[in-house]
Design a protein around this nucleic acid. Structure first.
Lengths: 223, 223
DNA sequence: CGCGCATGTAACCGGTTTGTCACCGACCCG
DNA sequence: CGGGTCGGTGACAAACCGGTTACATGCGCG
C-alpha cells in the first residue's frame, strides 16, 4: 500500500512517514508541490497526504493537479481554525482533512478509513504468481501453503518485488526503497535480507525458485 | 543514448546540447515546435528536453503530440515562478521539469534519473540492425538468436554503440562514457573490452561483422 | 535482569569481472 | 631496412560480487 506524503516541513513529513511506515505502509516523500505532482504520477500511490501550506505550489494546486488525472484518495493537512481552507480543500476534491496538531493514532485511523472507502482495504492481500502477500498480517503464503510471518524489512523487500513481479529490480533501487538510503547504500544489508527471506519462502533456499538473482538486482519469478 | 533538445533560443539550445554531448549523449536539435514533433518521430530519442516557450507550437502542444504516440521521458523547461505552467506540463504527461536558469550539473542529474527510471520500467529492448539489446536483463541477441549475458562494462559499451548505430564512435567518447574517465585514456582497457565483447557477439571474432574498427574508434554495422 | 527477535557487521569461499602485462603482426615513415 | 605506433590476442593477477556462516548490537518484554 503506497502513500505519498507531501510536506515542506521536514520534521512533520518525517513524523508522518515514520508513523505510516511503522503501520506497514510503503511511503514516498515529497518536499514541495512540484515533486508531489510528479511523484503522484510516477508512483501511482494509493493515498496522498498533502500539507496545505507549501512554498511554490500550494496543497490546493497540487490537489487540483492530481484530481485532473486521478481519483486517488487525498488527505489534506490544515492548521486549526482555518475553516475556509477546509471548505476550499473539500471543494477541490480532497477526501478528508486533518487539523494540525494531530495524533499518530488519528492519522492512521483516517488513512485506513480512506483506503477502506476506496476499496483498497489493507485486508486485501497482494498476489503475484505463487506468492500471496498479506500486508495487514505481515505474512506470506506460497502456493496456498501456510502463512509465514515476515519481519518489517522482509515485508518491504517482498512488497517491492511483488509490485514488480517478473521484472528485475536493481539492488540500488531496493536499497533506497527498503532502507531509505539515499545512495551507495550497503550491499551487505541487501545480501543478508535476501538470504533471510529465502530461508522463509523458498523450499530449497540453496536453489531459489522464486526470489532469483538477476542482472544487477533481484526478481520475483512468476509461474 | 539519444536526446532531443527543442528550444527556439539558439544560445540556450546549444548550451544544453553541449552539456549533454560532453556527458556522452548523442544530441538531436530542434529550433521550433514542428521540428521537435517531426524529429521525435523520425529519430525516436530516449529523452526529450522541451522549452515551454516556443513560437508556433508551444512546448505544451509538442508534449501533447509526443504523448499521443510515445511514452518517451519528457523534461520541460519553465521560467521560475510560473507555477501553473508546471502543473499544466505535469498534467500533460511530462516526466520532469527544470526552472530556468539551471546548472549543467542539475540538468545532467535529472536527465540521468529520468533515463534510469525509463530504462528500468521499460522491458522494451533496444534494437539496431541485427542487434537486440535488453538493458533490464543485461543480455544481447544477434539475429534473434539465443540471448547472451553481458557484463556491466560490455553492456555499457554496446549500449553506446547501439545508440549511435552505423556511426563511428571515437575511442575518446567510449572511454568517457563507459569508464567515466575524464580524459586521457587507457586505450588498452577499450582494446580488451572490445575483444571480449566480440568473443560474445561475433560469429567469427577474428573477422568482425558487427563491431568494426573504424578510424579512431569503433562502429556498429547496420544493414 | 535476561531472553528472544530483528537487524547490522565481519569474515570467508568460489566464481566472475576487470585491469595489467607481454607479445604479435600490420602499417607508416624516415 | 629499422624503429615507432596501433590494434588484436593470450595469460595472469587483482578486485569484486553474491552466498554463506558466525557473531555483535539493540530492543521489547516477561
Amino acid at each position: 500500500m503506497k502513500v505519498l506524503v507531501a510536506d515542506d516541513d521536514a520534521d512533520l513529513r518525517e513524523l508522518i512517514a515514520f508513523t505510516l511506515t511503522q503501520a506497514g505502509y510503503f511511503v514516498i516523500k515529497a518536499g514541495d508541490g512540484p515533486a508531489a505532482v510528479r511523484l503522484s504520477q510516477a508512483e501511482t500511490p494509493d493515498l496522498v497526504v498533502l500539507d496545505v501550506n507549501m512554498p511554490g505550489l500550494s496543497g490546493f494546486q497540487v490537489c487540483e493537479a492530481i484530481r485532473r488525472e486521478s481519483r486517488v484518495p487525498v488527505m489534506m493537512l490544515t492548521v486549526r481554525g482555518e475553516e475556509e481552507d477546509l471548505v476550499r480543500a473539500l471543494g477541490l476534491g480532497a477526501d478528508d482533512y486533518l487539523t494540525k496538531p494531530f495524533s499518530p493514532r488519528t492519522l492512521l485511523a483516517r488513512a485506513a478509513a480512506l483506503l477502506r472507502r476506496a476499496g483498497m482495504d489493507t485486508a486485501a492481500p497482494l498476489t503475484a504468481g505463487r506468492v500471496v502477500l498479506d500486508l495487514g498480517e505481515h505474512t506470506v503464503a506460497i502456493d496456498g501453503g501456510t502463512a509465514v510471518r515476515l519481519t518489517p524489512l522482509e515485508l518491504r523487500l517482498l512488497q517491492m518485488l511483488v509490485a514488480n513481479a517478473g521484472r528485475t529490480v536493481s539492488s540500488e533501487r531496493l536499497l533506497v526503497q527498503v532502507w531509505g538510503h539515499k545512495s551507495g547504500g550497503d550491499r551487505q544489508l541487501l545480501k543478508q535480507l535476501v538470504h533471510r527471506l529465502r530461508q522463509k519462502i523458498e523450499t530449497d533456499p540453496a536453489a531459489p525458485a522464486l526470489l532469483r538473482t538477476a542482472a544487477a538486482g533481484y526478481k520475483l519469478i512468476v509461474e
